[in-house]
Design a protein around this nucleic acid. Structure first.
Lengths: 236, 236
DNA sequence: CCTACCGATCGGTAGG
DNA sequence: CCTACCGATCGGTAGG
């Protein structure tokens, strides 16, 4: 019974939507899909940080995004995939920014200083993302967990190599490189748990202090190098 | 209409229960209340660590304890109070153990060493409790949050005083005592996120390494003192 | 992108 | 300590 006058108030399953709402209003979506995707990501980070992943309902998420719960399934296959995509993109950003930052720097002391800068910058500017990245590995399926874990290992490996190079060159001293790596990472990451833009210190100052701590921890001599200026970005 | 033959298969609202179950079996509880309380606490810690507080349902909790969901309300007034009692008892244990450990120790270097020992001992032996203690402050009501926050401040203050005393005595060197305190705490607490009893190092070895890191971070000279033997307890 | 719905489960309470 | 229940909400799907 499909006639030529059939009314189809909805269209196109892939992103180009024209929907008819309960209130009778016609809703034109157009290219809003990409915007929704960004808003969805930001709302997801915020809600997971506040409630935990399991406790974040898709209804909360849908409301923040301005969409019905069922419609979220146009953006992911299920809740678990949404978490994985979120966590993967965070760690990918972290690794990418680090490699970009370290490119061309040779001296282990300079590389260590750059690592501290980059790690603190990222962990203060994107603290909610860091928080869920450290917290919600527990909510990943085993396969997804392994994948994220492996990306984190890549990141940690960069620091481990820096320390090893520095030790072999005689700049650093520590009994166990693996433990030193974990100690430094935890120390630096900790900033993200208490940092507030309105706090006592600017990010630049904090970076200077943590560079000092890190070099002290590794019993580094004369660690004040040429070109040790600190670069940073203020939070938005 | 209460006759002398009235059958009351349940009794005593406070802890001395004799219940009649669906299967017709008579269940005598007697003094089991205290056991249940301990099991409840342990199950709560485990489930909150695994799922997050909001996502831990009282049905999960009841099943682990071997009780019906409604019966949990004999042990707390509501879910929020349960969380608060749990977190408060954890931080109380931490502070109590620390003060006991530090009692009678005078030299700031010895006190710092003892602090590192105690913090790592607690954070490896009770890692799930530490995890929820750091994670689920977000799920507390504002009043409860303030109360826990204040207990944590007491704990952190002990380390801050140790550092200040050491700096004034000329043993330690750092640009900012507040930041140094936070850096050391995060570094030590980090052990709880990756420590496994089957790992490469024993707790004793880890403590030695972290003492070294901590003294290095504070640029301490000749930190190997007499009586610097490391004490510890192995996990159960 | 929406409506309408599925079976399951939620924190909490009444009453015994 | 139990049974039985409250209204609300869950992740996900069908169909358009």
């Amino acid at each position: 019974m499909v006639g030529i006058f059939q009314f189809k108030p909805y269209t196109c399953p892939s992103k180009g939507w024209v929907g008819l709402r309960t209130d009778g209003q016609l809703r034109t979506i157009g290219s809003k899909g990409e915007t929704t995707e960004r808003v969805l990501r930001e709302a997801g980070v915020r809600l997971i940080a506040r409630h935990g992943f399991e406790a974040m309902s898709l209804r909360m998420l849908a409301k923040e995004v301005g969409v019905q719960a069922g419609s979220l399934y146009n953006y992911f296959d299920n809740k678990q995939d949404f978490l994985f995509d979120l966590l993967a993109s965070i760690i990918r950003d972290l690794v990418d920014e680090l490699l970009e930052k370290l490119a061309g720097i040779e001296d282990p002391r300079d590389r260590l200083r750059a690592f501290v800068q980059e790690h603190i910058n990222f962990h203060t500017l994107r603290k909610e993302e860091v928080f869920i990245g450290n917290m919600e590995l527990r909510s990943l399926s085993p396969a997804h967990h392994r994948e994220i874990r492996s990306m984190r290992d890549d990141y940690e490996k960069v620091l481990e190599d820096i320390i090893r190079d520095g030790v072999e060159a005689g700049y650093f001293k520590c009994a166990d490189i693996g433990t030193a790596k974990l100690a430094i990472l935890a120390m630096l990451t900790g900033v993200s748990t208490w940092y507030r833009p309105s706090g006592r210190h600017t990010i630049v100052t904090l970076i200077e202090q943590y560079v000092e701590f890190t070099f002290g921890l590794l019993h580094a001599q004369d660690h004040v190098q040429e070109g040790s200026r600190v670069s940073h970005r203020e939070p938005s």
